[in-house]
Computed example of a mutant assay.
Amino acid sequence: MKVHQIRFPVPGTHAAASSARRDLVAAIRAWGTLLPPELLDAAELVASELITNAVRHAGADGPISAGAHLGTGGLRIEVIDTNSEIPEAGLPGTAAEAGRGLFLVAALADRHGFDPLPSGKRCWAEFEFSAALSSAETHPM
């Protein structure tokens, strides 16, 4: 399987978060992989949550970047920001309109977490897939 990777800056605005999610998912889909639609849908929602959280909590603090890596082991989505606060899943009230993002990430991804960095943190989520899945370039339909 061919390895693919993308990373790009995300301005710290809510409009930019929406655009970044669309750009990231479009890039993953454009790689021409034979990933199941449900995995791509889950990756889109996870990317949206990670990017939105970075913009909401770190948008004013400095640069944000979003990226994805697809290799033989699976798909990894990462968002890096300059806010050093550790993300925590809270228990939002039933009427709360926010606060469920990390629960969604945990439910959809095979693994997720964060890595402290010298100037912020990296939040990531990984999706595994069968070794039988490969690029469309290798196994055309």
Score class of each variant (00 low, 15 high):
Leu34Trp: 14
Leu35Cys: 13
Pro36Tyr: 15
Pro37Asn: 01
Glu38Leu: 15
Glu38His: 14
Leu40Asn: 02
Leu40Trp: 13
Leu40Met: 13
Asp41Arg: 01
Asp41Val: 11
Ala42Arg: 08
Ala42Glu: 04
Ala43Phe: 01
Ala43Met: 00
Glu44Arg: 12
Glu44His: 07
Leu45Met: 12
Leu45Thr: 15
Leu45Trp: 03
Val46Ser: 00
Glu49Ile: 07
Leu50Gln: 06
Ile51Asn: 03
Ile51Tyr: 01
Thr52Val: 10
Thr52Ile: 06
Thr52Cys: 09
Ala54Tyr: 09
Val55Ala: 08
Val55Phe: 00
Arg56Trp: 13
Arg56Lys: 15
Arg56Tyr: 13
His57Met: 03
His57Val: 07
His57Cys: 05
His57Gln: 00
Ala58His: 06
Ala60Lys: 10
Ala60Ser: 08
Ala60Val: 12
Asp61Phe: 12
Asp61Ser: 07
Gly62Gln: 03
Gly62Leu: 08
Gly62Glu: 06
Ile64Lys: 07
Gly67Met: 02
His69Asp: 06
His69Val: 11
His69Leu: 14
Leu70Gln: 07
Gly71Lys: 10
Gly71Phe: 11
Thr72Met: 09
Thr72Leu: 13
Thr72Glu: 15
Gly73Cys: 10
Gly73Val: 04
Gly74Lys: 00
Gly74Tyr: 14
Leu75Met: 01
Leu75Lys: 04
Arg76Asp: 00
Arg76Ala: 09
Ile77Glu: 06
Ile77Arg: 00
Glu78Ala: 12
Glu78Gly: 03
Glu78Val: 00
Ile80Tyr: 13
Ile80Trp: 15
Asp81Arg: 02
Thr82Met: 10
Thr82Ser: 12
Asn83Gln: 00
Asn83Ala: 13
Asn83Ile: 10
Asn83Arg: 04
Asn83Met: 08
Glu85Ser: 15
Ile86Asn: 11
Ile86Met: 11
Ile86Leu: 09
Ala89Tyr: 08
Gly90Phe: 11
Gly90Gln: 02
Leu91Asp: 14
Leu91Cys: 12
Leu91Gly: 11
Pro92Ile: 01
Pro92Gln: 01
Pro92Gly: 00
Pro92Trp: 01
Pro92Phe: 11
Thr94Gly: 04
Thr94Ser: 12
Thr94Cys: 03
